[in-house]
Design a protein around this nucleic acid. Structure first.
Lengths: 155, 155
DNA sequence: CTCCTATCATTGGGACTACCAACGATAGGT
DNA sequence: ACCTATCGTTGGTAGTCCCAATGATAGGAG
């Protein structure tokens, strides 16, 4: 009896992920933000960071950090300024507007999590969270890991 | 205490999904196929299907079905022919080569599932599978559901 | 101090997934 | 005969993840 695709964890993960991402994206879209933007704001809540450091914490490529900070800065949610101590760096800090927005975003996040987990009881949700955490890849930061082969013959 | 992102199911799903997808893509890449191609072959194993029907079962957009069938047909794994009973349709069927390849792909799939679930015990894996299944969106087929708002203001 | 190497932010680009829209061909009902 | 729906194809968009090259800067070795 071959493994049925509908039972394969990779497929189930894919479906569940897609659903969660949609809900999350829709939720943050009201604020003209995407999930990565929220993650950046949340990471900055405890203090300014260089873009490179931000990228490491969020597992985002440097390029994508640049774009995310562009987006947030344009909306006045963060401030980007040269680090006087190391002029290669940009120090990104939350503005007051950014700090004020965070609670609302957190509310959105929690609401989405509830919706995602709605089919489960509270205990099941805890179990799921626990199990998923153990599946997570052991912190390989983006932009730091070696290259992955890309590009397949496209005929 | 705000929900920490690292604990949010949506984030954990995202990480786990990414890991599983990478492993699966890498596994099928040896056969010059991607996960969707395997899914198509598996769906066809029990009989020919029209592309539209294939799309519904795989939750793939019609366009992506066309491309997938192109890919598979070029490699001689499926046969695409006009349906004599309804000339709008293409009936897609497995070729002998396609049928012969399936067991190898299934082996790859199972091997990847084992690797994805490696951090868990067998019972935990069963629990996870069970919980994930309940999170899955109630079969909304791709290309059939209504439009989702797209496109956000871009700077 | 000079040179070498590493890191930083930026820019440009590629691959893949998930969508949508428009088209012409065909079916099927009225 | 007409209207509507479906089929496959083509072309395009958005978002995510990743790599490479560039120019500025830092920091250490000599």
């Amino acid at each position: 009896m071959p493994l049925r695709l509908a039972d394969a964890p990779s497929w189930l993960l894919s479906r569940a992920h897609l659903r969660a991402q949609r809900l999350l994206s829709d939720g943050f879209a009201e604020h003209d933000l995407r999930p990565a933007h929220y993650r950046a704001l949340a990471a900055l809540a405890e203090g300014g960071l260089s873009q490179a450091e931000l990228g490491r914490r969020l597992m985002l490529d440097r390029k994508d950090v640049t774009l995310a900070v562009d987006h947030l800065a344009e909306r006045g949610l963060v401030d980007r300024s040269a680090d006087p101590a190391d002029r290669r760096r940009n120090v990104v800090t939350l503005t007051d507007a950014g700090r004020a927005l965070l609670p609302r975003l957190e509310h959105t996040l929690e609401s989405v999590q509830r919706e995602v987990l709605a089919p489960l009881t509270e205990e099941e949700a805890r179990t799921l969270t626990h199990l998923l955490r153990r599946l997570a890849p052991a912190d390989e930061a983006a932009g730091v890991t070696g290259p992955r082969p890309r590009g397949r013959s496209r005929s």
